[in-house]
Design a protein around this nucleic acid. Structure first.
Lengths: 115, 115
DNA sequence: AATAAACTTAGCCAAATGGCAAACTATGGG
DNA sequence: CCCATAGTTTGCCATTTGGCTAAGTTTATT
């Protein structure tokens, strides 16, 4: 478990904005140029471009320029660290439940055995 | 798919900070008072309390006061929306791969059939 | 050559975030 | 009653975020 985990922070931060999630949802259906990506957001291009750069910084999107249009694509593998983190938390939680289980067992045993 | 999704935004925002993830990691192992929660972060109490309130706002943590100590507890079900969102994205992505598959099939068929 | 299209850059602004110190409010123990 | 413990509240600060307009820049298209 890395103490400094810029990946996860960037990832969660990128996903914490509804506009960026909207853009990502569009890209999950296939690549798109910036203008098409901007349309459903209702925001101006500079704003959308900054959101895009946040998504790129998180590794969720790659872009490349073909002529005068920049094509953006979703990078699903960037979600892996988040998935891993989720699993990790679940593992800790499960372990805790197991310990609780053991504890309850102990209590029951004490009850039946009696002092 | 809700257009306004404050839940997800609050959730991702709460998780986007390493200090908050550290606190949450501690709580996944079991409830703890604020001071114990603060210790590993290296930050002062007011700072930790504000992080705590962000976690509470996201529903990830509940707290209650018993005497002069506030006990904090992890609420794992708060992670569900995030899990659901992940699955949703995966579904969209998978559907896209299927369509791509169909497309490739079509191309292959055209090749063999010839014009 | 001139115009339109598709970004891109620069700079401005208000609000939110993340840190702190200092002062205040319980509550539990001696 | 007194004092330490455990929070809590208040205000301060620098930085980041998320929006904009206005003014470039680079490719098509006509």
């Amino acid at each position: 478990m890395a103490k400094h985990d810029p990946d996860l922070s960037l990832l969660f931060h990128a996903l914490s904005d509804p506009t960026r999630r909207l853009m990502l949802g569009r890209l999950a259906r296939g690549p798109a140029p910036v203008t098409e990506l901007a349309a459903p957001t209702g925001f101006k291009l500079p704003t959308v471009l900054r959101h895009l750069s946040v998504l790129e910084a998180a590794g969720l999107v790659t872009t490349q320029k073909d002529g005068r249009v920049r094509s953006c694509a979703f990078m699903p593998q960037a979600l892996q660290p988040m998935h891993d983190w989720l699993e990790e938390q679940r593992a800790i939680w499960d372990a805790r439940l197991d310990r609780l289980d053991d504890y309850v067992m102990t209590l029951m045993k004490e009850q039946t055995d009696g002092p």
